[in-house]
Design a protein around this nucleic acid. Structure first.
Lengths: 192, 192
DNA sequence: GTCTATATGAAGATAGAC
DNA sequence: GTCTATCTTCATATAGAC
């Protein structure tokens, strides 16, 4: 029992370290040595926990998905209206200002990198978008009677992704504030 | 003379091949061998033309900037109004539908990749955004009296970048059409 | 200028001693 | 379960014959 716990703890340590590394360096520049150093696990030892770099990626994405589900569930329970929930989503870049202006969006930048020529890996990373997308669709459906919930959800994703891309390129905090405010007003307009 | 011409011709051949490769694979997955193969230049021979991969990147960006300047100049001379010019810009993803849904935006995806941990290289790639951004600001200033030309230019960049990101993730041509149409209407509204 | 052969280093991955 | 030593592959880069 104690053994299994320790193994699992080290696994989580590796996943947490890789999560950051992936965000800060990208998948293809992140080496197994980087992961070992960051997780403070001896180099060759990593292979006991994960056989390939792809496996680590899959574990990190699975971990992210779990965290996201927890967060969205919490929002459902603590934020009373669909409007406020959508606004909460749109405000993520404000809360993550420092990270967004330095590294962009962790989901978007990863998909952009993998989408070019690593379709199997992108399929894994894409699940993060699927999860948000489906949640957003449900919120828009609850916000107001519409047949456009799908379009609206994608439009919101488009604008938050573009915002993250430009915010990083220009390290521009003012841009984040302006764009989030514009999204806020747009959402309010839809709710009327 | 003839010799210099041939050297220059091969240089251009390498730059053109690398331009595509960069877009289709990304910078970090693109190897010198890939470039040599694509440009049909013997492997070790590349080093005669470019000493490092970074140098090839700089040459490709310089080439792209030249093409962009030519295109924008042509638009200035053949498209009569600022509104029509801005709409022409917003419509690029429609003309590049196949590429955008497969590889995203060539400028945006490159900056996203390099922005994480290769600031010197990103500084080179960023010039593409600077060029469009300044041109867009001038068009918005000519469109209608405003103090927000900078904001509007960035907003348009945000939405085209987000569009390209999502269009690639979901290989979604309908999304491109919807978002470009929405941009079209938004621009028309500003012109009134 | 052109091309082959090769040096060098880092990456992913494995075997096997402890 | 832990760690070292090592294999293989592929990358950048150079030397030097033609």
């Amino acid at each position: 029992m104690a053994k299994r716990d320790k193994t699992e703890q080290i696994r989580q340590q590796i996943i947490a370290a890789t999560d950051d590394l992936l965000y800060h360096k990208g998948f293809n520049l992140m080496s197994f040595s980087d992961i070992a150093d960051a997780a403070e696990v001896p180099r060759g030892n990593l292979y006991y926990y994960f056989k390939t770099k792809d496996e680590v990626l899959a574990a990190v994405i699975e971990h992210r998905l779990q965290q996201m589900r927890l967060m969205l569930d919490e929002w459902e329970h603590t934020i009373p209206t669909p409007l406020a929930r959508l606004q909460r989503y749109a405000r993520i870049p404000l809360n993550e200002m420092e990270n967004v202006t330095r590294f962009g969006c962790p989901m978007g930048s990863l998909n952009t990198e993998l989408g070019k020529s690593q379709p199997e890996l992108q399929a894994i990373a894409k699940q993060q978008f699927d999860l948000f997308r489906e949640w957003l669709v449900r919120q828009f459906e609850a916000l107001a009677p519409t047949e456009n919930a799908e379009h609206l959800a994608l439009h919101l994703l488009v604008r938050t992704q573009g915002l993250a891309t430009l915010a990083q390129i220009y390290h521009d905090t003012a841009l984040v504030m302006q764009e989030v405010e514009a999204l806020d007003h747009w959402l309010e307009g839809l709710a009327d």
